[in-house]
């Protein structure tokens, strides 16, 4: 193959370029965290509409009929103090080796600053990372944590979130979405504008830069979709004041509905890559195999 050396050279140049880009962006200053801040918009995940407080004035629930946000204790219907005690024990066992015993990202042994500070991030952040199976991380040094089967149960994840939140209250609280009045068509339009750039229009996910990628959205638990949109895990930006809770609910309905269950009439989606992939498979496998089969059946071996 004559073009092979040229291809190899081009790949080497591309790799080098990516590496250079990584070095130049790694030093870029990162956005400062949103500790203690929430959007002022009343219907966008902030604790300023439909607020319910407990006897001591703590916000335990807020939101609308589209999405309600609750503290872990309120969600589970248990006492906050008990849950936080359980959460502390679980945290020390599963999380403290990296995030530190004060959850401030400073481990007893290891590099301070290498791990995120969790104080004041809000229960939804902690709940998302644990319930999506990304935390505890299988390998804390990878560029991006992978979605996996969660090793910590729903109730235990909420307990850890409750304890971290008891150090300094943050928002959003843990969301619960109600899809009963959702508009899938509005969700599709909002998905195309806000989500499809990275996750692709089929929701299958795609590569980004520097070894990161936008994960597939197929068959993600609905409340985790809300958590991701509102908190922006990893390299994903957060979507705050430009999406109301009702709009987020519409997106969730679209992502958990048509996106997760595409109508592949041919039986196989082929990644939803469109006519190029389909034509290629059709020609290479369909026609190719049939041609080989034809030759084999019709071959004349006199003798």
């Amino acid at each position: 193959m004559k073009n092979l050396p040229r291809l190899l050279a081009a790949s080497a140049v591309a790799l080098l370029g990516t590496a250079t880009a990584f070095v130049s962006t790694a030093s870029a200053s990162k956005p400062s965290p949103n500790v203690g801040l929430t959007t002022a918009r009343p219907d966008a995940g902030a604790p300023n509409s439909g607020v319910v407080t407990d006897s001591s004035g703590q916000i335990i629930k807020y939101g609308s009929s589209a999405i309600t946000y609750q503290t872990p204790a309120q969600l589970l219907g248990v006492s906050a103090a008990q849950l936080e005690n359980l959460g502390k024990a679980l945290y020390m066992q599963n999380c403290s080796s990296c995030h530190g015993e004060a959850a401030n990202g400073v481990p007893a042994a290891g590099t301070p600053g290498a791990y995120p500070n969790l104080v004041g991030l809000g229960p939804a952040v902690v709940d998302f990372w644990i319930e999506s199976g990304r935390m505890p991380a299988a390998n804390p040094t990878t560029v991006q944590a992978l979605r996996a089967k969660p090793v910590i149960s729903h109730a235990n994840a909420l307990a850890i979130a409750a304890w971290v939140n008891s150090l300094q209250a943050g928002y959003p609280l843990v969301p619960q979405v109600n899809l009963s009045n959702a508009s899938i068509s509005d969700g599709a339009a909002l998905f195309a504008l806000n989500c499809a750039a990275c996750h692709t229009i089929t929701g299958g996910g795609d590569a980004l830069a520097d070894g990161t990628y936008a994960p597939s959205l197929h068959k993600i638990p609905v409340n985790q979709i809300v958590e991701a949109i509102r908190t922006g895990p990893g390299n994903m930006p957060m979507f705050t004041g430009n999406l109301s809770d009702a709009q987020v609910r519409d997106i969730v309905a679209y992502v958990s509905g048509p996106i997760s269950h595409p109508a592949n009439n041919g039986g196989l989606g082929l990644g939803g890559l469109g006519p190029v992939a389909e034509g290629f498979i059709g020609l290479a496998i369909g026609v190719g195999v049939l041609a080989l089969l034809g030759f084999w059946v019709g071959e004349r071996n006199n003798g």
């Binding site: 956005p31 949103n34 801040l37 918009r41 504008l193 806000n194 004041g241 709009q247």
Partner: peptide, 21 residues
Amino acid sequence: VDQSGRRVHEDDLLVSSIATV
């Protein structure tokens, strides 16, 4: 304004938020 024509207020977006406007 955002995709639904709603004006964006300075307190709407948190740090590291993105919106197409």
